[in-house]
Design a protein around this nucleic acid. Sequence first.
DNA 1: GAATTAATACTCGGATATACACTGTCCGAGTTCATCGGG
DNA 2: CCCGATGAACTCGGACAGTGTATATCCGAGTATTAATTC
Lengths: 161, 161
Amino acid sequence: MQLRNQVEWALHCCGLLAGLPEGRRLSTKSLADFHGVPKEYLSKALQALSTAGIVEGSLGPAGGYRLAKPPSAVSFLDIVEAVEGRRRTFACTEIRRNNPCRATDTCDMAPCTIARVMWEADEAWRERLRATTLADLAAMLGAEIPAETLRKVAAWVGARS
Amino acid sequence: MQLRNQVEWALHCCGLLAGLPEGRRLSTKSLADFHGVPKEYLSKALQALSTAGIVEGSLGPAGGYRLAKPPSAVSFLDIVEAVEGRRRTFACTEIRRNNPCRATDTCDMAPCTIARVMWEADEAWRERLRATTLADLAAMLGAEIPAETLRKVAAWVGARS
DNA sequence: GAATTAATACTCGGATATACACTGTCCGAGTTCATCGGG
DNA sequence: CCCGATGAACTCGGACAGTGTATATCCGAGTATTAATTC
């Protein structure tokens, strides 16, 4: 029960894209180089983000990705769900139906009690992820990363976009 | 990113064990029959619960499992962690270290900003699961399940323990 | 110099390979209880 | 009637196979930009 690697990559990529100057783009290759991950596989995650409308890609040379919305409109949950899917953490297979003591004519009642508790926990998780946006992330990163490094990153990105 | 089937089974089994009369036990076979799942595989989940000190098994005929603690002392989180392990949902692989602009002598700082947010969400999930115990579950089940069915289950369990 | 053509760099989607975790089954070893036989 | 031996029922733990998912790589098709060529 662990999130995919791609979720981590997608979040870091979005963090970088959030700091991109207006009108600029970063190619899959640049993003892959920056994070030290395989280009083709990262591409799958970016495609998922693109399908979800979080980033938008353009073809041809000087093509690449940029955010499709302002950073404040993209939450962590959006990114996680785009890559990981929207299935719930807990899947109820309704094993209570196998209960030999259960009346056969019991019409399908409310969801299984156990599933309800698990789903509430799931919702708490989602709620927390919904509460943080890329704008928040950018602010936190700006406060934590040394100014020297930030400058270098800006220069690196500028040369590649 | 989904919890195992065994988690669902373990929760249902604990729910049943919580209603067991003092001193009685239920065998793996009975629990498997009741829920309509394969005995040998369910056994793995019960072993995990046993290792975690949530249930205790006894050998020999008339052997089987019972709760090792009062129902109010066992939370959903205990059960989930026993079966699923305690790994966090999000694994940070520190890809920020691959950042080409990062000073090589940067001593390991605080955990990655992104990982911190993900871990806070994880903690919210755990917190919710910690808040519900088997005693709560028993109360909810008692209120939701038809009295007729409850009687039948009690009889079924009584004949098998 | 303008228009057209060719080359290039990139994204996108599909096909494929590999490793690992989940699911499920099987069996032998060890333990406890009930039953049976001998004293 | 009592005690030990035998057998049955059960758990425990390991071994093993099948399946699905995550990870990763590769390649061809399509597209937009740039460069080159032609008029």
